[in-house]
Design a protein around this nucleic acid. Structure first.
Lengths: 304, 304
DNA sequence: AAATCTATATTCCATAATGGAATATTATGA
DNA sequence: TCATAATATTCCATTATGGAATATAGATTT
């Protein structure tokens, strides 16, 4: 295209201001420049388009036919510039936001502290978090509905990139009213004789547990109840005579405060890894890097 | 609106060139500026929008998400600038054009010489001419379908401005075969005894003639034929025994070459004025002023 | 691994553009 | 005719621009 004689947007803005504010002097006031500068810009536009865009009407100026066409162009261009600035502002805001999805257990027990710490350390950033099942979390991540996920299983989606976050363990626990409170290590054969309250069969934790038990020849435990919330399970154990397998990070506080008891099993430890997952498209996200940095800092404190 | 940080179109054009031509150096070549100038313009756009619009991809640049939005804006703005320039070019061409409408008689006998003279004197201008009846000519003029008209009656439309062009006369003429060929002045009473070929009843000339005859008490002449073309009437007179009233400017040549005879009528001369008409909206037309100037020059020569 | 090539980024400097103060010009109203 | 209001022009100090020279960074070749 022709690269000569392209006007400046400030010149077009000046023409618009002269028309819409009723004169050169008013336009100068609105634009915070001198009246001679306004006149010069109008002359520069005339030169640019090779035609007179305004003419005297008494001691005022009015648009010529050519000027009307340029004025309309100026409005179009400047209105789109405003829209563009709005779009860029949204984009800028989006760069400081992170959409995080986590499993229910992580959401209940780990996320609150993480979010509080993050807000203190990075006030310019903002996290939007949601809890869900592992499969849905992976789907959202892969389709761009979230930016980062904390998972209890390694995702198997080709678009998702993972890095190890934490080691964790599923531990067998009971309340004070249970006969195994304070017991020594029990054999694996004893597991069939206990009554269980467990998490939902679709939860990550159950999938890991079911696999580990199959590995030692136990196809099915005597499950009295399946409950969605690990906090609810903890309360039920404390009041009743059931046991449960729960993530260590979910019961650490209860073990320390002696409201739950960790029943050790001879020859069996169910270890697993917690993962940080995201997609390739936001590898350059500063807010994601900051969040991961904080996750690592907190994992050092958690292990101590 | 916000008047700060408005980019230049040349900066937007530069961004577009970098994207569409595949790099900074290619864009510099296309725009006939140096490679550092291209880089600086990209940096200026970054500053303008407060965001990086391009990023390194190896040793090449690619658009960021923000840059894509600005690039789309650049295309919109520059494409509309091209359209605007086309519009202005049409407008510029229109300023050198004049749409002229004239009555049939003027069109046949005066306009050809006028147009030839005008084309020689003002080669940069262009005239589009049409012939028609006086009423339609006035209507076209008033509604902007033409710019200037040459009329044989003073127009009565409020939007139309007129200035006198020429004095003219309707003269009674006959051919060599007519008994009045070479006659002395005839009395008005003799008019009823002649046979006439006249122009159409709606023509300006007929309207003027009919009024003049009514003024002397003659309601109707013995009209053998009504013919649209004054040239055709002239030919019929030269071959037959009819007479006709025709404008002097239409028969001057025939009178001089003795192929028609001017029959003078005792106590009767039918004078009229030819008019130049236009509307207020093109009073500033340079080409109209030039044409009128030529009309006046030619009227001096015609009277001699 | 080092040298070379290619593309963009930065520095320095001469030139051009810009905007304001002062003043001139033009049109309107009293 | 004079005063007022609005725009246009001149002069000048300051800022912006673009190119030459050079630096930096990544890719390719040896």
């Amino acid at each position: 295209m022709e690269y000569r004689f392209l006007p400046d947007l400030k010149h077009l803005a000046t023409l618009r201001a002269v028309v819409e504010r009723g004169g050169v002097s008013e336009a100068a006031r609105a634009m915070h420049i001198g009246q001679p500068a306004v006149t010069k810009r109008l002359r520069a536009l005339d030169a640019c388009y090779g035609m007179s865009l305004m003419q005297r009407d008494g001691r005022r100026l009015e648009l010529t036919t050519a000027g009307t066409k340029v004025y309309n162009y100026a409005r179009l261009v400047l209105d789109h510039q405003v829209s563009l600035l709005d779009d860029l502002e949204l984009l800028r805001a989006g760069k400081n936001k992170l959409r995080v999805e986590v499993t229910f257990a992580i959401g209940e027990h780990m996320l609150p502290n993480l979010l509080l710490s993050f807000a203190e350390s990075y006030p310019a950033y903002r996290i939007e978090s949601r809890m869900g099942y592992s499969r849905r979390i992976q789907r959202h991540l892969a389709t761009g509905l979230s930016d980062l996920a904390l998972l209890e299983q390694a995702p198997d989606h080709p678009e998702i990139l993972v890095q190890k976050w934490l080691d964790d363990e599923l531990v067998l626990v009971c309340g004070p009213g249970h006969m195994l409170w304070g017991s020594d290590m029990i054999p694996m054969s004893e597991l069939d004789n206990l009554r269980y309250v467990l998490s939902e069969s679709q939860s990550s934790m159950r999938l890991t547990l079911d696999k580990a038990l199959r590995d030692i020849g136990i196809d099915q435990l005597p499950i009295t109840m399946e409950v969605g919330s690990t906090d609810t399970i903890v309360e039920m154990l404390q009041r009743g005579r059931h046991v449960s397998f729960l993530p260590r990070f979910a019961v650490d506080d209860s073990l320390i405060s002696n409201t739950l008891y960790h029943i050790k099993i001879q020859g069996l430890r169910i270890n697993r890894t917690l993962w940080i997952a995201r997609t390739r498209s936001n590898l350059n996200s500063a807010v994601a890097e900051a969040f991961i940095h904080l996750l690592r800092e907190n994992s050092c404190q958690t292990i101590q």
